[in-house]
């Protein structure tokens, strides 16, 4: 057990230290040791990104390091991705349709958050950046998700949330999904006023919120 957590900690440290070689070898060992691919991502790779995110917020790291950390994270992810896909027996916790809201072109937060959600057991459909309200509507029709995730990285685009929500309402789809906003400028009370069901500036808290929603649904 201890070996497993050591190995997962080594993976996380590898991401923080931007060390692709360490990440690759420790992910490979973890797979050999039989640690589940979900734990490798959730407790190894994602934990590393979480630390990187915190260091960036605190001004200890800059964007070039964050981007290299993302590459390192993805290098590890690539090794476990095929195993996750093979794991057919897995029952998804829920389905999320996620995109960056209209007018917003920030991509990094979404690209970090999506693997975290997948690692937690959600199916995620990535709609990309600067997604029009109608495209969210179309995607909800097509994919029938449980949750719509809006990447809102600026105050101005966060304030656009009500329009995306209204578009879902007009299409008669609002009742069948929960809506969550994510990004550094969100405010939970404002998000509720704008018609969303939740908001967070942290992907891991996002998982907790969405897990609670899915638990409600099952009850």
């Amino acid at each position: 057990m201890n070996d497993e957590s050591d190995l997962l900690a080594t993976i996380a440290q590898g991401v923080v230290h931007l060390d692709v070689a360490v990440v690759r070898t420790s992910v490979e060992s973890a797979v050999r040791e039989g640690i589940s691919p979900f734990r490798i991502v959730a407790e190894g790779l994602s934990q590393g990104m979480r630390t990187v995110g915190a260091l960036f917020r605190d001004g200890e790291l800059f964007m070039p390091e964050v981007l290299v950390a993302c590459d390192t994270y993805y290098a590890g992810l690539q090794l476990v991705q095929p195993l996750i896909e093979k794991d057919n027996g897995r029952i998804a916790k829920g389905k999320i349709v996620l995109g960056t809201i209209h007018g917003d072109i920030h991509t990094v937060g979404k690209d970090v958050a999506i693997p975290v959600f997948r690692a937690a057991g959600f199916d995620v459909v990535d709609l990309g950046t600067d997604v029009a309200d109608e495209a969210f509507v179309e995607a909800v029709r097509q994919h029938q998700p449980d949750i719509v995730g809006l990447g809102t990285y600026m105050t101005s685009t966060f304030m656009h949330t009500n329009q995306t929500v209204e578009a879902l309402e007009r299409a008669g789809l609002r009742g069948q999904v929960k809506v969550i906003c994510g990004g550094p400028a969100v405010d939970v009370r404002a998000a509720l006023k704008l018609g969303a069901d939740g908001a967070t500036d942290n992907a891991w808290e996002g998982v907790q919120i969405m897990e609670a929603w899915m638990a409600e649904v099952r009850e």
Binding site: D58, G59, E60, F62, M63, P64
Partner: peptide, 12 residues
């Protein structure tokens, strides 16, 4: 707007 003292650019 970046760095502990907000005296750096995004790239540092």
């Amino acid at each position: 707007d970046s760095g502990k003292l907000h005296d750096r650019t995004l790239m540092g």
